[in-house]
Simulated scan of single mutants.
Amino acid sequence: MNDLRLGVIGLGVRSDLVDLAHRPGSGSRVVACCDRDPDRLAGQARHRFGADALAVTDHRALLRSDLDGVFVLTPDFTHEAIGLDFLRAGVPVFLDKPLAITTAGCDLLLAAAREHGTPLYVGHNMRHMPVITAMRQVITEGHIGEVKAVWCRHFVGHGGDFFFKDWHADRRNTTSLLLQKGAHDIDVIHWLAGGYSRRVNAMGGLVVYGDVNSRRERTGERMTDWLAPEENWPPLSLRGLNPVVDVEDLSMMQMQLDNGVFASYEQCHFTPDYWRNYTVIGTEGRLENFGDAEGAVVKVWNHRSDYRADADITVPITAQHGTHGGADPLLVQEFLSFITKHGATVTSPVAAREAVAAGYAATESLRSGGQLVEISPPDPDLVAYFDGGQS
């Protein structure tokens, strides 16, 4: 069997994903790559993918490269346009999350995938993370009964370095971090709850990093060039933030799902610790994770008592080999299998759209005084198409 011919758009930090797919002679290889930074392209392309790999600065050149699939790993605000180009050209697309930065953009991508019969896969790797799969298993096995409420607190301890020194800090590029960063957690909330948000409201603000006046342009740099967790603390000591900083560093939203479940999500970008904590409450118990990486545990209480640290069930979390607790290798493996066999996947383009829609509506609410915002569901025919495995 010949190797799948793959392309990659964007050689930034997240391009480590495509290294997992570049396995010449073992089923897939990267034959073409694109990055708008010619220096980055020259320094990486042939070193990583071989002397014969096509290297270009315009993604449209890859449309004519006879690719079996393409990884779009570019900044969020480019996902819609680049994704549409490849979907319309019939090239299967791995589109990193979030699917787009508006609900309308997501709907255009879903419609294009269906219209042209082009496989679309969205990189929601958290659906493969051991802590998330453990919580979902606890729920599906019935240990807490029927889910009625989900709470998530996300402590983004490296937020200043990760999101306030480059394009992420500008709402024109992300809509908000409630959408950009929150799309992961909103998708997980939906997955654990078995439904999608239909009514949301939110509050929040730029409460810390807006007071940091040190700003500078970082064109040509990557996050790994400035990340220094040991040095950049406390948050107000950060220097060299993006010239434009107009996204919130603290936000909280409430959701009512289409199946009656209520949920909340809180996100803070200036905590000393970096992890996410979920609580899921059902009709017969509750679960909560402590930690989200190697050594974490999921605890389940399903017998009445006063406070007790010991749980009725404790599930230890063991990370697998690879980044994000082994989730990224599974994500790439699923995409490669999907473009050859099609069929259902753990990730879902419809769910990706619903996560963006919730984050987009919550941002609208947050910036208009916390008003309630209704979310329209996607076209039922589109839902049926994707639920049917895109065939």
Rank of each mutant, 00 (worst) to 15 (best):
H269F: 15
E221C: 12
P229Y: 01
Y265V: 08
R239N: 04
W233R: 15
R216K: 03
L250R: 05
V244W: 00
Q256I: 10
M255W: 00
Q254S: 08
G240W: 06
S237L: 07
R239F: 02
V212E: 04
V244T: 15
E221H: 09
P235R: 13
T224K: 13
Y265C: 03
A263D: 11
M253Q: 00
E231Y: 02
P234K: 15
R222E: 14
L238G: 13
P229R: 02
L257A: 00
D225A: 06
L238P: 14
E266M: 10
G210R: 05
E248N: 13
W233H: 13
D249L: 10
E221W: 09
M253T: 10
N232V: 11
L227G: 00
M252Q: 06
N213K: 11
C268D: 11
N242M: 09
F262G: 05
M253L: 03
D246N: 15
Y209T: 13
L250V: 12
V261D: 07
V212I: 14
D225H: 09
E217A: 00
S264V: 09
V261E: 08
W226T: 04
E248V: 09
Q256H: 02
Q256S: 02
S237V: 14
G220P: 10
R239I: 04
A263E: 10
F262I: 12
Q267R: 01
L250S: 08
L238T: 10
F262P: 01
G220T: 08
P234W: 14
R215V: 15
L257I: 03
V247D: 01
V244I: 15
R239S: 06
N242L: 11
V212P: 13
E231H: 11
D258Y: 04
E217P: 00
E248L: 03
R215D: 07
N259F: 05
N232F: 03
G210P: 14
S264F: 01
V244C: 07
S251E: 06
R218S: 07
S251C: 11
P229M: 01
Y209E: 10
T224I: 07
L241N: 14
S237F: 14
M252R: 05
P243W: 03
